[in-house]
Design a protein around this nucleic acid. Structure first.
Length: 649
RNA sequence: GCCACAGUAGCUCAGGGGUAGAGCACUCGAUUCGUAAUCGAGCGGUCGUCGGUUCAAUUCCGACCUGUGGCUCCA
């Protein structure tokens, strides 16, 4: 802050009006000049695009907007304050707790504490109750700007805060926020006082490394969420419940799709029903890749020589399952964690002409990656998985067309399931191979190809693979969660390492480029997403059981058996169920989420008809002839129709 | 791998220092049924594993295994 009389700052309000204020004027004062009612409703302000709270001095001019509860940015302010209120409560009940960081996050907020004994669920209840007291006390959030010396004195008992303080540069404003008994080193912004926090819930505790560094101490993190309105909080908790209901581990067990066993941690056992689905996916991909792709199979186990050539032995060994060689007594072999090196060996096996390019090797081989035990989770994170992998060898001049075709391919595959994807374009990372000219060419080609598709994409600078830029496909499921599935990666490094070549039309040898491509990532993860996306109510073509045939009484067994055979002969996965009452069997079929039920009573038996009940459609039934329904269901299967979609129970 | 929590019948879960219970599933019998659970009977568990404390452990303690939520990592 300079001592000379500073020039006034000009703030431009949304309606075009302006305010001339002296630097250091508090935002609150400016809002007060607009209206007292607005001041009451104000949570924070936006100055020149930056959110700051009402207690913060204005230092720059520019567009000035008042942020009220209606503004989505206000929620992050509330949640950040919620984190402070949580810390206030924790400090009151556990004065020994050292404070770490407490930011707002996507769905709420958290605060990290360093404590001698970890928090228990009972502690959480006590903190919740204490937070309500702190909120009721309506402590104002008081902002102070201090210097390093004062900061070190104030946080003398909080080593984590001192560490953060020491990192702040001389030109940075050091600010603290105080609410009642609690002071925190914090940039803000905050709501005016603690009473703004009304609708919140502490969710769970978790360990978290200080600064996210596994070499540092483990702190105790408390996760929580907060909203402006009770109904928003309710809705959020309901969404959590809904996600739990759709959890693929729950649904997979209920629908008997897969299992795990302690003897094979991180590796799925697929039941007959689950295998049927995986095979349906596999068949579909094979059909899509019938032309222009060369499906190959390569070994699962390799001598370390391959991994030394590929670089995995140095960079990836931690994640590889090493196998003891009986003769050498050394871990000279490893299960493959990726397909690419073996595909390069296949490519090297013969000489290639430019006429063969692009050459696409695709495979469904099984891969093994030795994930740390704590990382495993259902089907989404496993140690053994099947990837729909493809490596494309091509000339640089072919990159644009190829990427365009691959992007279309991947997106249209997702569309079959009603899944939409967001594209992310990731550029050169800090750690990389190849010169800038190569990266310019690669990024230029990939980006041009991406733009040619016409799809919108986000930029992720510096997030590319070390060997080349990539396009990632983030799929959003029916309840709005994003999963990274497909990827298209340009690789200029592998062709060098493996000395890949082709003979050009000039009769000289050239270096091809490699594209790594995955569509569903892994069958395991993709199945998890599909299970949760459809909540187990799969499209007919994918459903492990497509039609359940329910004769009304035993004397119709013969007719029902003949009808079942008719459908099975036509390739429909039909099953006959003659047990128990009709009501009971209908309930069983609904619970099993079988898309179609065909009831055969005396009337239907006499007229070669079926009383069709569609999953989730309730009592509404259609009487159709056996042949007409056979035509309809085989059409739906052949076209991979999404219907009968929905049908929640 | 690290922190916390959990593991009781096929599933969902109750219980608790004196070796266990419900519903569903399963089996059998009766019922032959018109759109989400017919009735009855029966079977089923060395309470995750190993060790310790105790007269006695499924219960208390410890280690390990597996899972869950996170951290880290990632398809």
């Amino acid at each position: 802050m300079s001592t000379a009389a500073p020039a006034l700052l000009t703030l431009v309000l949304p309606d075009g009006a302006t305010r001339e204020v002296a630097p250091g004027t508090l935002a609150r004062e400016v809002v007060g000049t607009i209206g007292q009612r607005l001041l009451r409703d104000a949570i924070a302000v936006s100055v020149d695009g930056e959110v700051q709270d009402l207690m913060t001095p204005i230092r720059v001019g520019g567009a000035f907007t008042v942020i009220t509860q209606k503004d989505p940015r206000a929620l992050a302010v509330l949640r950040h304050s919620g984190a402070h209120i949580l810390a206030t409560a924790v400090r009151r009940l556990r004065p020994d707790a050292k404070i770490g960081f407490g930011p707002a996050i996507d769905d709420g907020f958290y605060y990290d504490f360093e404590v001698a004994t970890p928090f228990t669920p009972e502690d959480l209840e006590a903190f919740d109750a204490e937070m309500r007291k702190v909120a009721a006390e309506a402590f104002p959030f008081v902002r102070e700007e201090i210097d390093q010396v004062a900061g070190r004195a104030r946080f003398a008992d909080d080593p984590l805060k001192l560490e953060r303080l020491a990192e702040l540069g001389a030109d940075e404003v050091i600010s603290t926020y105080t609410d009642g008994p609690f002071v925190d080193l914090c940039r803000g912004p905050h709501v005016p006082d603690t009473s703004y926090l009304k609708h919140f819930k502490l969710l769970h505790t978790a360990g978290a490394y200080w600064r996210g560094d596994e070499r540092r101490q483990m702190l105790q993190r408390i996760y929580a969420t907060a909203f402006w309105k009770a109904e928003d909080l309710e809705a959020h908790l309901h969404r959590i419940e809904e996600a739990k209901r759709r959890d693929h581990r729950v649904v997979g067990k209920a629908l008997d799709l897969f299992m795990f066993h302690p003897f094979a941690p991180g590796a799925a056992f697929w039941t007959e029903r689950g295998t049927t689905m995986v095979n349906a996916l596999n068949d579909y991909l094979r059909e899509l890749q019938r032309d222009g792709y060369a499906e190959i199979k390569t070994p699962l186990l390799y001598n370390k020589g391959l991994w030394e050539t590929s670089g995995h032995w140095g960079k990836y060994r931690e994640n590889m399952f090493l196998v003891l060689d009986a003769e050498t007594k050394e871990h000279d072999f490893s299960l493959k964690p990726m397909n690419c090196p073996s595909h390069y060996l296949m490519y090297l096996n013969k000489k290639h002409s430019y006429r063969e390019l692009p050459l696409r090797y695709n495979t469904y081989d099984v891969l093994h990656r030795n994930e740390v035990s704590g990382a495993l989770s259902g089907l989404t994170r496993v140690r053994q998985f099947q990837q729909d992998d493809c490596h494309i060898f091509l000339m640089e001049s072919q990159i644009a067309d190829e990427v365009k075709a691959l992007t279309r391919f991947i997106l249209s595959y997702y569309e079959t399931f009603g899944l939409t994807a967001r594209l992310k374009f990731a550029t050169r990372p800090e750690q990389r191979v190849g010169d800038d000219a190569m990266w310019d060419r690669a990024e230029g080609a990939l980006r041009a190809a991406l733009e040619a598709t016409g799809y919108a994409y986000e930029l992720k600078p510096g997030d590319g693979a070390f060997y080349g830029p990539k396009i990632d496909f983030d799929v959003t499921d029916s309840i709005g969660r994003a999963w990274q599935l497909g990827t298209i990666q340009l690789d200029y490094a592998a062709p060098e390492r493996f000395d890949l070549q082709y003979v050009g039309d000039d009769n000289h040898t050239h270096r091809p480029v490699v594209i790594h491509r995955a569509v569903s990532g892994s069958f395991e993860r993709f199945m998890a997403i599909l299970i949760e996306h459809f909540a187990g109510a799969f499209p007919v073509w994918l459903a492990p059981e497509q039609l359940r045939i329910l004769p009304l009484s035993d004397d119709l067994a013969e007719v029902a058996q003949a009808v079942t055979k008719r459908f099975r002969d036509a390739g429909v996965r039909a099953h006959l169920d003659q047990a128990e009452s009709l009501n009971y069997r209908i309930r069983q079929a609904e619970v099993a989420k079988v898309p179609y039920m065909a009831v055969i009573g005396k009337r239907e038996a006499e007229s070669a008809q079926l009383a069709i009940r569609v999953r989730g459609a309730g009592k509404k039934q259609e009487i159709v002839s056996v042949e007409a329904f056979l035509e309809r269901i085989t059409q739906e299967i052949a076209t991979r129709a999404l219907t009968p979609a929905g049908g929640e129970s």
